[in-house]
């Protein structure tokens, strides 16, 4: 169907637009600086991706680190390293018997003090060597003679011993880590303290050479 002429009015002529803005002149150095900034930002974004934690690292506990006698405070408990000793054997004196723990290697004995923030806790330890090996406290010494079996309560400090069986050459550069035992349905992000034993090669060798033959504890 043809539209009769005259029904649609002719569009009025467009008003003249604003005059073309004159092209702003950008100096060459600013272009170069902008390009460089963009490149730096892009490179930075790529670099930050390399710092993303792996799934294993995301599972790691929250660590407070320090050295000998440093009071390490976490949300759950505080701990401090009080003494480091070495021994060739450990004798646990019980009420009616005596246990003798021997080793072809050496026993590293760590005295730790601890107090809790809110609730009584039991603290487990493990020893991390300079090479990243993780040693559990030895089962040759009855856990009842060690700090692992003691309750740490709010309000006062108590100390106890942890016994590790290690090769003598692994002592230098090691640290002892304390945490609440991780349970399957417990808190996923448990805090831990990491105390450097302050042993370099020379000091470790000297202390191991001077190790006691028998270390006596009651348990």
């Amino acid at each position: 169907m043809a539209t009769p002429p005259g029904l649609v009015p002719d569009a009025p002529p467009l008003p003249p637009g604003p005059p073309e803005a004159p092209r702003r002149h950008v100096p060459a150095w600013r272009r170069a600086a902008g390009a460089l900034l963009g490149l730096v930002l892009a490179a930075g974004a790529v670099y930050v991706q390399t710092r993303v934690l792996t799934a294993d690292q995301l599972d790691d506990p929250l660590t407070v680190s320090g050295g000998m006698h440093d009071e390490l405070e976490t949300d759950l408990f505080s701990a401090r390293l009080e003494r480091v000793e070495f021994a060739r054997s450990v004798r646990v004196k019980k009420q009616f018997s005596t246990d003798e723990a021997t080793t072809e290697h050496v026993f590293l004995i760590v005295k730790m003090g601890a107090t809790s923030r809110r609730k009584p806790v039991q603290l487990t330890a493990h020893l991390i060597t300079a090479g990243g090996l993780s040693f559990d406290p030895t089962d040759r010494v009855d856990a009842r003679a060690t700090m692992a079996d003691k309750w740490v309560q709010p309000g006062w400090w108590r100390s106890g011993l942890y016994f590790f069986e290690i090769p003598p050459d692994k002592a230098a550069g090691s640290r002892v880590v304390l945490s609440e035992p991780k349970t399957l349905f417990g808190d996923a992000f448990i805090p831990e303290t990491s105390s450097d034993l302050g042993l370099d090669e020379a000091k470790a060798r000297q202390m191991i050479d001077a190790a006691k033959d028998v270390y006596e504890v009651s348990g």
């Binding site: 003798e100 993780s134 040693f135 030895t138 089962d139 069986e165």
Partner: peptide, 14 residues
């Protein structure tokens, strides 16, 4: 087995 006793742990590198 060590020194006539039975234990449970195998420590790294040992």
């Amino acid at each position: 087995v060590s020194g006539g006793h039975a234990y449970d742990q195998l420590h790294p590198g040992m």
